[in-house]
Write a protein that binds this DNA or RNA. Structure first.
Lengths: 243, 243
DNA sequence: CGGTGTCGGTACGGTAGCAGACAGACAGGA
DNA sequence: TCCTGTCTGTCTGCTACCGTACCGACACCG
């Protein structure tokens, strides 16, 4: 779709693809509302989604129904990663957590274009690694960090991927993401609020002091962001410049 | 190195590579002793290792020095995954946990051979996905399972990758892998021993009742093994047949 | 306006796992 | 043989987090 001018895209992968790669693809703009299911465990998907705004969550679920989030994806990336790794399916659920816009591409087309373009292969391979690194740091955080630190990490990761300071979601939802009890989220939010790092009200979290949040999260935040930037490059500023 | 007959290999990836792929590679057999460092965070490596026996651990470390294991690799796989994903380095440590044999290949050669062989690219891409899935289930386990269940999971994963029922390692070492306190490992081992699932003595764990261990681990074990088998195929039997 | 569902705050008892310390068992060397 | 280092078992608080339950606040709707 030649109408889509690469420089107008906000998705960091699409922007960094080699010139002309997109020319052969049908990029279809779509709006994804909250909790829209992008991918289900072991179900082949038709389309890959490259986000322009909004946030998607990747969640693993155990046979007994326990679950935790392993990655969040915004305009830094795409899903499903299995489309990049010669697999038809993966065992994850992906759904929209904050509604937004995306471009979608039929996976078969994406794979075909990819097989002809070594530079694009490299970019997507590095993105797959960036995602694996995110999984790894989530595993670490789940093992060693306290709830309030993990919450701070999570808010920071969302903040990186949204345009404003507001993130709209419920405690219930957060408790699923962090794999903790719902009331634990309430108290952890109060801790952050008490330190004036965020402002929180019904269904909404607002970042007040980003630097303070990073300090509070200590080593829970930062490493996998650095690794993303090393592998892919920085994400464009909010107005679409730079990058 | 034409001397290496593919059918005599035990490594599940090497065995499944397309005919002739290995012909262009210098596979060098090496013995890797316990705690040998295969890869360090952010350090480019010269060689990729395909294990024939023994077990390697992949560990993430936070800036403040906290750490946890995110994957274990035996003759089911290779390291480093970054060699397959167009990255020179990754933020992980990989080292031998149970000594063993491997074939190593210069990464530059591996990449060169790979770029000419689409089938091999597919196999390695699927392996990268299998590893990412292992990271994800580790994250889940760290979040929701109790120490004794995680220990059972870990013993099972080791057992899958060793020839006998014996696994030689100390509580100290296990505590690092599971990111828990060392005495917690002692008591968790006692739980498993009390249920006659394992036998444990100084520096040694012996599996007595594998089925019982799987039952004890509940949903902590199994999913990512299924996914590996779906993506790559079963691991050859211990005598090298089948597969 | 009152009804109903969703969401957030709080409380209480229970417990898994922590931090730190220490002592007994085993192994290998001098 | 003793000696030393490594490994394992155990103890005493202590606290973070859990399971469960309940109630108030808010928001939409007729």
């Amino acid at each position: 779709m030649e109408d889509v001018r690469q420089t107008m895209l906000r998705n960091n992968l699409l922007r960094r693809l080699p010139d002309g790669f997109l020319a052969g693809l049908r990029l279809e703009p779509v709006t994804l509302s909250r909790s829209f299911q992008l991918s289900s465990p072991h179900q082949p998907m038709d389309h890959a989604y490259f986000f322009e705004s909004g946030i998607a969550s990747v969640v693993v679920r155990s046979p007994e129904g326990q679950h935790t989030e392993i990655a969040i994806i915004g305009r830094d990336g795409m899903c499903p990663a299995s489309a990049l790794l010669d697999a038809d399916t993966d065992p994850f659920s992906v759904f929209m957590q904050v509604q937004g816009e995306a471009h979608r591409v039929p996976i078969s087309e994406l794979k075909a274009a990819l097989s002809e373009d070594r530079e694009a292969q490299g970019l997507f391979a590095r993105y797959a690694q960036a995602l694996a690194v995110q999984h790894a740091y989530t595993a670490l955080s789940n093992a060693v960090h306290h709830i309030d630190e993990r919450l701070a990490r999570w808010i920071l990761m969302c903040h990186d991927r949204t345009d404003g300071a507001e993130i709209s979601l419920t405690h219930e939802f957060l408790s699923i993401m962090l794999a903790v009890r719902r009331p634990s989220v309430t108290t952890a939010l109060h801790v952050l609020e008490g330190k004036k790092l965020i402002y929180s009200e019904r269904g909404l979290v607002i970042v007040r002091d980003r630097a303070g949040l990073e300090a509070f999260a200590r080593d829970a935040y930062g490493e996998c962001e650095k690794e993303y930037e090393r592998l892919i490059g920085p994400i464009a500023d909010r107005d679409g410049t730079a990058g």
